[in-house]
Design a protein around this nucleic acid. Structure first.
Length: 445
RNA sequence: CGGAGCGUAGCGCAGUCUGGUAGCGCACCUGCUUCGGGAGCAGGGGGUCGGAGGUUCGAAUCCUCUCGCUCCGACCA
């Protein structure tokens, strides 16, 4: 993408309403525009990151064997009357009437609807296990939206629902989600710690929240610092192997890590003092096992091998997709702007032409741009007629992890600079070597 | 929903107390000079002062109502 043809409305000054760093930078980098309290338009740069995050979620769900579909944002009220939640949900549910005076609602989550789909088409244990998910906009009419996309009223969420014939299978689905989520967050450059939590209005027995540590987090968390060293990495996981998946879950949940809802000081105090940490965290996902709560209320039954009928065992599992942008920025920025992890960056690399209009510099930049494209890497080429300082400031603000700097001075010696946004370290090399270097960095992202 | 604030140009703000030609910085447009970390000079465009009603010779400014937004708190992916 050539910057002169893009839409990137960056702001030099801090918008007054933005209190936390991720909100400030998202506004300043031209990623979002507020349209109402807690409701945002996603401008091109923000939209690109959102799509990157969605793609990672889809890939990891596929790896775990979960099936994507898409349910609507508007739902009929009657479905929610069946589960009893139409009355329970309260003011947070946005209720709407259509022209026939039918009661509708803007979905805050989808347990009822997915159960409705399931019961209409699945009647036998032979069709299980089944896990369906979608990535769709949700609406919760928060009392106080704040912090930009971190607590919006309209937000994009991945929500998945597992259907299993018995509790052991449902718990395997729970574990499978935990492992797939660990990998999902790691690919986004995040350390998200699964913490035993409280189930809240969804109900159920087992639940973990995934917390990203950040001083601006809304939850107080208590943990053994050793948990932050745990990494799933690139290990091969057989998601159908119950023991293997369960073992990974034990690895990540044995050390103490809890939110204030489940915190137990007596247990916490047994951790060696140097590793005892109290911090704040941003909740970026949650997994629940809730058994037959919805299947019983809504009549989602399957026939078992011995001819009986049982309500299906369920759980639900969510990732706050739009919130993740805020969480990633909170976890990865400096005083100049955002620092995107390679996994989610809107563009893999930026090209800065220090002297637009200089024949050699223009030609070198065009050459780099095309060579990168040929390797499947879409650079953001700053081809504006701006001074070097302005271009650097823009690149630093929008946070592309790598920058290639091209100027007449270097080109006279046949070299360009490759600079890491994270470390600030620059290396001089030929344009060909720069392309190879960037390609190698992204080879296994 | 309780408490506290704020709505003046695309953004950040002054002007409101004490009514009298609507301003500043950034951004934008034109020209010249400049050009490896948000350039300089000169010129220029842009605002029914959130909205409605009222008081007044005269309202951004005073009064009433209303809409929107932000912050603190209780709730939440």
């Amino acid at each position: 993408m050539r910057l002169t043809r893009y839409f990137l409305p960056v702001l030099k000054e801090n918008p007054a309403e933005a209190q936390i760093v991720s909100h400030r930078y998202m506004l300043r980098a031209g990623m979002i525009k507020q349209q109402a309290a807690g409701i945002y338009s996603w401008l091109p740069l923000g939209y690109r990151v959102l799509k990157r995050i969605e793609q990672i979620v889809h890939e990891e769900q596929a790896r775990a064997g979960h099936i994507p579909l898409l349910m609507p944002t508007l739902q009929p009220a009657d479905l929610w009357r069946e589960s009893g939640r139409y009355d329970d949900y309260g003011q947070e549910m946005l209720r709407i009437k259509d022209r026939q005076d039918r009661e509708m609602l803007y979905g805050p989550t989808n347990e009822e609807m997915i159960t409705d789909i399931f019961r209409a088409h699945v009647t036998s244990y032979k069709d299980l296990p089944l896990t369906l998910y979608h990535i769709q906009w949700k609406f919760r009419d928060e009392m106080r939206p704040r912090f930009g996309v971190m607590r919006g009223r309209e937000f994009l969420m991945k929500d998945g629902y597992n259907f299993d014939v018995d509790k052991a299978s449902a718990l395997h689905a729970y574990n499978r989600h935990m492992v797939s989520y660990l990998r999902t967050y790691e690919r986004m450059g995040l350390t998200a710690i699964p913490m035993r939590a409280d189930s809240g209005p969804i109900g159920g027995d087992d639940t973990h929240e995934f917390l990203v540590l950040a001083s601006t987090g809304e939850s107080e968390v208590f943990f053994d610092s050793a948990v932050t060293d745990l990494k799933l990495g690139n290990r091969e996981v057989d998601y159908d192997n119950r023991d293997e998946v369960a073992a990974i879950c034990r690895e990540f949940t044995t050390l103490y890590a809890r939110t204030d809802e489940t915190h137990d000081p007596a247990v916490f105090d047994q951790i060696p003092e140097a590793r005892r940490k109290v911090a704040r965290g941003i909740e970026v996902g949650q997994i629940f096992y809730f058994g037959t709560k919805y299947s019983e209320a809504m009549g989602a039954m399957v026939t078992t091998a011995d001819g009986g009928k049982v309500p299906v065992e369920m759980g639900s599992h969510g990732i706050g997709v739009s919130r993740l942008l805020g969480a990633i920025i909170e976890a990865s920025h400096d005083d100049k702007g955002i620092i995107w992890p390679e996994g989610v960056t809107p563009f893999p690399v930026g090209i800065v032409n220090l002297k637009q209009g200089d024949a050699a510099a223009d030609a070198a930049c065009e050459g780099l741009y095309k060579a990168l494209a040929a390797k499947g890497l879409e650079a953001l080429y700053d081809d504006r007629d701006e001074r070097a300082g302005a271009k650097f400031a823009t690149m630093d603000l929008i946070g592309l992890p790598w920058r290639i700097t091209v100027g007449p001075r270097g080109l006279a010696n046949g070299i360009v600079e490759v600079t890491s946004r994270r470390t600030g370290v620059s290396e001089e090399m030929t344009p060909d070597a720069a392309v190879a270097r960037i390609a190698q960095i992204y080879a296994d992202v």
